[in-house]
Design a binder for these strands. Structure first.
Length: 213
DNA sequence: ACATTAATTGTGT
DNA sequence: ACACAATTAATGT
């Protein structure tokens, strides 16, 4: 499939034929296996990714090396942090690791300026993804500040399953605990509670969502 | 198929 | 939070 066709399918908001032609010319497509680093803190940002398949986890790191989960990116998403980085021509503020085998289209940052001027659908797309991400991060801040861990966990599960549009989440309790900055035991116990209530079904490396609010 | 080992999950303090 | 038990999955024989 050509880049043009992929974009049409996954990013229908981008409409100008001219824009699609330019994307065909300047963008590259790239795949990376689960577990690899998409970008490291301090790296120079050379392109903005449009995710086709797979997912990426985006984190910040504090001075003691603790990771703070910012958000997950899935098919149809783009990375808002990359945006702000390349606008200001600075190095990456974030680390992004590939969670699920990734296919992405890379937009060279030198295209950004021009396309923002020339193509309204590109402008809308950027604005829209920026505001979606901003909203989501506000919610995350709210939940850290105001919600108890059981609610946070539930929200986390609900959000992740909605994002990748599946009722089955793969991964360990430890990984969830890391994302939520709590201990593995707490996650295990809360999950057990949810299972007793019939809201999830648990097995090793797998959580099946039955019924979350 | 069975035993061994490593990783994940469960539980009491 | 820690220690340890129990369970499950992966691997070798």
């Amino acid at each position: 499939m050509t880049i043009k066709e992929i974009v049409k399918q996954k990013f229908p908001i981008l409409v100008e034929p001219e824009l699609l032609n330019e994307m065909e010319k300047y963008c590259t497509s790239r795949t990376m296996p689960a577990g690899s680093n998409f970008i490291e803190i301090g790296d120079e940002v050379v392109a903005m990714p449009l995710l086709i398949e797979g997912s990426i986890k985006v984190v910040r790191e504090d001075k003691d090396g603790n990771e703070l989960l910012l958000y997950y990116l899935n098919g149809g998403d783009t990375c808002a942090s990359t945006l702000s980085c390349c606008m200001n021509k600075v190095s990456s503020e974030i680390r992004a690791t590939v969670i699920d085998d990734l296919t992405a289209i890379l937009v060279p940052i030198r295209c950004m300026d021009e396309w923002l001027k020339k193509y309204s659908s590109w402008r809308n797309f950027i604005m829209q993804s920026y505001s979606i991400r901003f909203e989501e991060m506000l919610q995350t801040i709210d939940s850290i500040a105001f919600m108890k861990m059981d609610e946070r966990l539930e929200k986390y599960l609900a959000q992740r399953s909605a994002e990748i549009n599946t009722t089955i989440l793969l991964g360990t309790h430890q990984e969830i605990a890391d994302d939520l900055h709590t201990s593995r035991e707490v996650v295990s116990r809360l999950l057990k509670q949810l299972e007793k209530l019939g809201r999830v079904r648990l097995s090793r490396n797998k959580i099946e969502i039955i019924n979350l609010m």
